[in-house]
Design a protein around this nucleic acid. Structure first.
Lengths: 341, 341
DNA sequence: CTGAAAGCGCTTACAG
DNA sequence: CTGAAAGCGCTTACAG
């Protein structure tokens, strides 16, 4: 593998000159620059990442800490976010290093190891909790962090998120405006609520707010990661004396199964019950044209990456006034909401 | 951030001794080792990754080149593979670096950059094509590669894959054994067939083989990434004078939509048509209890990671006799296959 | 406009 | 059983 010395020799200059051509931080004569460029091209030279990061204390890598459930193993975060983050990072000249497993957990063994060994310049945390121990852990290490989600202490860290409160509220309002008064909210799975994942808590807060505003009760039912249990809860809902005429569902992956189950009981959407999906990936709905608030993956990825890159480039800017990005929800009207009977 | 010198000073030894304690490659007295361990613990020391890789020419990082479609942007690879690979890599002491975008493409700008700059010790390629230019590109750079998939030239590279040929054949056979003679195969989306992704080509090969073995024709219909177009093709199939009584479907994410569409025409599964899913993620089927061959994500991830790690540790072993892992399909019997009418 | 030199934090032969 | 020293490939003040 060619080194900077090889390039320098081939171009008839000093290694430092090659370095300056690469960084552009010094004026170089056109002639010299061209000779260096040609030698780089010819030798297929790329600076050694280890040497570069050792010398410059910058790696151009962002660590991505995947959410780890305390109870479930894999959270169905979908490749879309990883893909989106990697793409967004690439546009800033950064690569993305995955951190999973126990490693991503509270103690953050993996995250801490990456921070301490300077494998990355900054981290993005996914699946953040309202009070996320990783935030304090990284602050103690002076390691820049941007968070995908909206923690309780909003000014303690840079974060970007869909406005889940408003997303839930918008969904409830859409059903209210269609005339529904018996609206139920099927929230995220209970593990996420228990862990106080920010999207779970914010979503429920938004329901409370909308309910108060509109003056109608909107009962909240936690979903279940066990499909059978989820359907039992659904049955309980519809077996009650006051069954819902409308559902807002913040567990979009479960929606195809829910519709199939209801259909087996002769309950048709939207004829008998209206439905809004909250925060789905496009593929979650299995082709159902639902009224919905989609997850703005691209926007969220771009926003959180920009924050992470800013902090990576200038860790001093890590002060609490760091950026915050609240992305407004967009309601897409599909075919699953009908006027109330 | 503490360096090896700080630890050495705190423990009253030479830096080299700290290094030897860490690597275990030299006998150290119990007393000294304990003193060093304590100092490491107290200072929260982790070796600097850049320095380590510069010196040792090993990064303990595996690059993961995501599939990039020539036509579509994101391939719905699902986070499960990235997660599985990252977990498996972690068990070997490796981290995973994502490579996406144009970067992952033929020229492999990103992949080549990572290889040349020694950001990683080896790469895992996803979404591999039968004749994948990235394989030759990496060989020319002497960069170790393991492939998730089964390329045409099987001994040219280390690879691990579900046996898609057998998976497709097993699915067709299951339908045949239930008495079906009008079996159709809904293959992967046509872009994947055109790009000659190995799972697409292998799946179709398996259908051909099963068809020949059983002595019944099994027409192959490419799927479409456009849901509306896919349903049009489905309609054409069922409008023909000889409509299928059974489908094997290698586009599992489309299955919920397919069932819904057929139901709207009064066609029930399995009453009127039987169905087998080929190569689905658990979440692809939206809770449908289909007869299926599931993607063995964990096994595939573990297998390809092991190959990559072996090559990373000993690039000389990169000879064509490198490992191959063909994972046998497992048919799970669900409720979507009924005896032929 | 360009070069010679120091040094980032490690690992590993060399030496005792 | 342990240490002193060289050197991995860069970047960047220092010097001209």
């Amino acid at each position: 593998m060619a080194t900077i010395k090889d390039v320098a020799r081939a171009a008839g200059v000093a290694p430092s000159t090659v370095s300056y051509v690469l960084s552009g931080s010094r004026k170089i004569s056109e002639e010299t620059r061209e000779a260096v460029r040609a030698a780089i091209e010819r030798l297929g030279y790329h600076p050694n990442a280890g040497a570069r990061s050792l010398r410059s204390t910058r790696t151009n890598v962002i660590a991505l800490a995947l959410p780890l459930s305390s109870s479930r193993g894999y959270l169905p975060v979908g490749g879309r976010f990883m893909y989106g983050l990697s793409e967004a990072a690439g546009e800033h000249g950064y690569d993305v290093l995955l951190i999973t497993g126990r490693d991503a957990g509270p103690g953050g063994a993996g995250l801490e190891r990456v921070a301490r060994s300077r494998l990355a310049d900054a981290a993005v945390l996914m699946g953040v909790e309202m009070e996320d121990p990783r935030i304090d852990a990284m602050r103690e290490l002076d390691f820049p962090v941007a968070v995908l989600g909206r923690p309780a202490e909003e000014s303690a860290v840079a974060w970007a998120d869909l406005d889940w409160e408003e997303a839930a509220a918008v969904s409830v309002r859409a059903l209210y405006e269609a005339g529904h008064r018996d609206i139920h909210y099927l929230a995220t799975v209970e593990e996420d609520i228990r862990d106080r994942r920010s999207y779970s808590v914010r979503g429920i807060d938004g329901v409370r707010r909308a309910s108060a505003e509109l003056g109608v009760p909107v009962p909240v039912c936690p979903s279940s990661s066990d499909p059978a249990e989820l359907l039992r809860r659904l049955d309980a809902l519809f077996d009650a004396e006051d069954p819902p005429t409308a559902l807002a569902v913040q567990h979009p992956a479960a929606i195809p199964g829910i519709l199939r189950h209801l259909a087996a009981w002769g309950i048709q959407v939207p004829r008998d019950v209206s439905l809004v999906a909250v925060g789905n990936f496009p593929e979650d709905l299995g082709g159902i044209d639902a009224t919905r608030v989609e997850l703005p993956v691209r926007e969220m990825s771009v926003a959180v990456t920009r924050l992470a890159v800013e902090l990576a480039a200038d860790p001093a800017a890590s002060r609490p006034t760091a950026g915050r990005e609240l992305i407004p929800p967009r309601l897409i009207r599909g075919g699953t909401v009908a006027p109330a009977p």
